[in-house]
Amino acid sequence: MTQASSNRISNTIRTLRFMHGEMTQQELADLVDVTRQTVVAIEQGRYAPSLEIAFRIAEVFQCKMEEVFQYQAPEKGKKAKK
């Protein structure tokens, strides 16, 4: 599971790709209509996609969005990083 340190959103895209016939990043990018570099950035937690792209990714893997993306709420008293 990859977690973005900045926005507390993690994802399991890499695992899901592996479980779906070792789908390549380029294949996922083509299915979701983004560039391969955007898929790489999402996987590494460097970019939190829009809701629309997140739904499209979940649709590709035929699973619920919570199975693809997970949100970890900040601890009380700590502000989430910008």
């Binding site: 209509d33 983004v34 560039t35 570099q37 955007t38 996609p49 829009s50 792209i53």
Partner: peptide, 8 residues
């Protein structure tokens, strides 16, 4: 050149 996406 690739098509511009939301991250771009």
């Amino acid at each position: 050149p690739e098509k511009q996406d939301e991250r771009d």
